[in-house]
Amino acid sequence: MRAKYVMSEVFLGLWRNISMTVAMIITMAVSLTMLGAGLLLYNQVDVIEEYYQTNLEVVVYMQRDVTEEVSEKIGEELRASPYVKQAQYESQEEAYERFQETFAETKDLVDSVDPEVLPSAWRVEMHDINDADQLIADFAEREGVYQVTNQRDILQEVFDILGGAQRLTLVVALVQGVAALMLVANTIQVAAYSRRREVAIMKLVGAPNWFVQAPFVLEAVFAGVIGSIFAFATLIAAKFLVIDGQFSNLFSLMPPITMQSILILLPILTGISAVISAITAWITLRFNIKV
């Protein structure tokens, strides 16, 4: 009986103030989409880190005119270094093959590069990639060495870009979130005003506080849940249309964003938005409906 009354009040309240309800849902959806994207990026950084952590190498590029002798000597010294787990030689031909593989889709680029242009190299697998700087310091200035690169430094740039994108989404999520919560507060005030008669009578006959407040809080929670479902749908659409669709080349450089990591966002987003909406509504009520 009471549940039915509360539910009918919730929908009546949302319907009576439909423009505000729609505005509330839209801002919430945008905010939550951004939050979801931010969380995906956060997760993605983790995935990439894990993916490369075991495969990261230090590459010691030899000068193009280096003699085999010098090259061998460097190799031996590398193997003797306490930081090095394994060192493998990559000849110019092998480097060219790798290059062809990597850029197989851009034929022009492959055609424009001679095999001789690419340097031979020692690909060094470290015990601990964090010691790379010391190894680089040891070998960078050696005769015959052209350049020593730490793959992690290259990866760091990717991380920086992802981190920047993540910060951007979180800032947008925050700003939109604040707007959404203000709309919630406003909606609740309007609803409380339009139902002031009922509220006054309920308090007069001794209705428990939770019962007086429930329709308002549930209104906010309902809008929050609908907003999170829209946000979830937007993220799914983004996965199919943007990541797997139009910009698939761009995203193929990093491990794919799995469906699973998006699916897990549904309960997270719904939970966050429901709880925050409810708290906002409840706080608003404390100022509007005094006992």
């Binding site: 009986m1 009471r2 009578i201 006959v205 001794g206 209705a207 428990p208």
Partner: peptide
């Protein structure tokens, strides 16, 4: 309504 809001059964 007075009975309803204080949880008396229908």
């Amino acid at each position: 309504f007075a009975l309803e809001v204080i949880g008396k059964p229908r």
